[in-house]
Design a protein around this nucleic acid. Sequence first.
DNA 1: CGGTTCCTTGAGGATGATCAACGAGGGTGG
DNA 2: CCACCCTCGTTGATCATCCTCAAGGAACCG
Lengths: 196, 196
Amino acid sequence: MHIDLNLLFSWGAIAKEYKKNEVVFNEDEFANFYFQIIEGTVKMINLNDEGKEFTQGYFSEGQSFGEPPLLINENYPSAAIAIHDSKIIKLSKDKFLKILDEYPSIQRNLLNLMAKRIHSKAVTTKAIINQKPEYRINAFLKAHKSDLNNDTKQLVYFTRQEIANFTGLRVETVIRELSKMSKLNTVKIINHKIYY
Amino acid sequence: MHIDLNLLFSWGAIAKEYKKNEVVFNEDEFANFYFQIIEGTVKMINLNDEGKEFTQGYFSEGQSFGEPPLLINENYPSAAIAIHDSKIIKLSKDKFLKILDEYPSIQRNLLNLMAKRIHSKAVTTKAIINQKPEYRINAFLKAHKSDLNNDTKQLVYFTRQEIANFTGLRVETVIRELSKMSKLNTVKIINHKIYY
DNA sequence: CGGTTCCTTGAGGATGATCAACGAGGGTGG
DNA sequence: CCACCCTCGTTGATCATCCTCAAGGAACCG
């Protein structure tokens, strides 16, 4: 979902620039703003005690993120960090809630977006719980396939470290598992690049 | 969230009885109905290839479940099974969607519910990914604490098997971990019952 | 061409799963 | 009342798997 930029600006939203690796909000911080990406990419992550990173999701151009806590007066369960230089539009919580009230179609879009997110989180959790690294990686690759064309394998634009962060595995495990999978022809690896 | 029963009936909903262990819907089945529990309890689960069960959630009296696929034309990512004899109200998908259109306040309630679900799924995923059994169990216990009173420990109404299914661990691990935790006084175990 | 990020491989170890066997409690019907 | 059953809890031994640590190689970019 995304809300029309002119509408956002007319309600007093401002665009803010974030440098690569800059924090948009932190875990356990209270939610005060609606965020929508104009350009760039943001990741939502959790860090555990040992500093291991788990990625909840990536968001890019045209996408909003971090809405649920706005609706339920909660703190953010994860941190948001720009992974490229990004331009992000911010609107205060109360204005955002007013927009939802005034524009039923926006509220409906948001509802559908939430439904999609829940669905994909259920799928993700299911894959992660399945233990076996191969399942996790496969599920990740399937979920993040841009094109659903089955015939030809497509380049995967994620590093092995990123796949590890998404699947809760370690890089080395991802590497070893991917090379197993390439032997079984589940993926193709050409010149270190992954095709799925 | 729950929708007023009279309203549901006036739109043609019917109440159906389910026996203990009866399937309400299966994983990968297409979503045709809105479900709301009148009495009883339903669990949403996934089974992996080896038949190991992972619990996505429990739902009881007054709660609805399985809504997201209705909104996005998707199949169910998990199965729903009655864990007690239950009475559940069913309303067809198109009628449900019409209700959402006609009653903005219901749509808004659903939106808030979805926000809550996403939030708690994020928290769950975070805990599970944290690897360490102790974290997972602790997070589970905290999330399912009925009362937020910190002073006195309360009885936990889950079997060790259920905790295992929620956390993706095995029963034996849960048992061993719980007895470790009782030595550290994180939980109390009296006569096999868990207090947290 | 120097630095940074990413990928790769091996060896060793910790940990949770698995398997197997048994104990404990609660409810029901004879 | 007690004998049985069924579900739940417990314990120990062994095993497979993924993590950890360490070291080095490859690709890319200004």
